[in-house]
Computed example of a mutant assay.
Amino acid sequence: MSDGALQTPASRDGNAAIRVAAGIRDAIEHGDLAPGSRLRQEEIAERFGASRVPVREALKALEAEGLVTLVANAGAWVSRLTLSECEEVYQTRERLEPLLLRYSAPRLTPSDLDQLEGLATEMTVHDDVGEFLRLDRAFHMLSYSRADTLMLGDLVERLWNATQPYRRAYTMLADADTRRIMHDEHHLIVVALRDGDVEGAERTVASHIRRTRRLLARHPEVFSPG
Rank of each mutant, 00 (worst) to 15 (best):
V89T: 12
L96Y: 11
G75C: 08
Q91L: 10
L101D: 00
E85R: 08
Q115D: 15
E122D: 12
Q91H: 01
E87V: 07
R93E: 07
L96I: 02
C86K: 10
T109S: 11
T92L: 12
R95Y: 09
L99F: 04
G118Y: 04
A74W: 01
L83R: 07
L83F: 07
L100A: 05
R95N: 10
E87A: 10
R95H: 13
L116T: 03
Y90A: 13
L108K: 02
D114V: 08
Q91T: 02
L83D: 06
D112T: 00
W77F: 12
D114T: 14
L96H: 02
L119W: 14
L101W: 14
E94L: 11
R102E: 10
R107D: 07
L108Q: 06
S104R: 02
E122K: 14
V78F: 03
T82E: 03
A76F: 13
L119M: 03
E122Y: 05
R80T: 03
Q115P: 05
A105E: 07
Q115S: 07
E85G: 13
Q115V: 15
E122H: 11
E85S: 05
V78R: 01
S84M: 15
E117L: 08
Y90L: 14
E94G: 10
E87Q: 13
W77S: 06
G118W: 05
W77V: 05
L119N: 02
A74R: 15
S79Y: 05
V78M: 00
T121V: 15
L113M: 13
C86N: 10
R107C: 00
S79E: 10
A105R: 00
A74I: 00
A74P: 02
S111E: 09
L96G: 04
E85M: 14
R80M: 04
P110W: 08
L116R: 06
T109L: 02
E117V: 06
E87C: 07
Y103V: 05
L96V: 07
T82P: 06
S79L: 08
L116N: 03
A76D: 14
G75A: 12
R93T: 13
G118D: 00
W77D: 12
D112M: 02
E87I: 11
D112G: 08
L99I: 01
E85F: 00
P98C: 01
L81Y: 03
T109C: 03
R107T: 03
V78C: 13
A74S: 14
G118A: 07
R107H: 09
S104W: 04
T82H: 02
E88F: 11
P106S: 12
L101E: 06
E117H: 07
T121S: 13
R93W: 09
P98N: 05
T92R: 10
A74K: 11
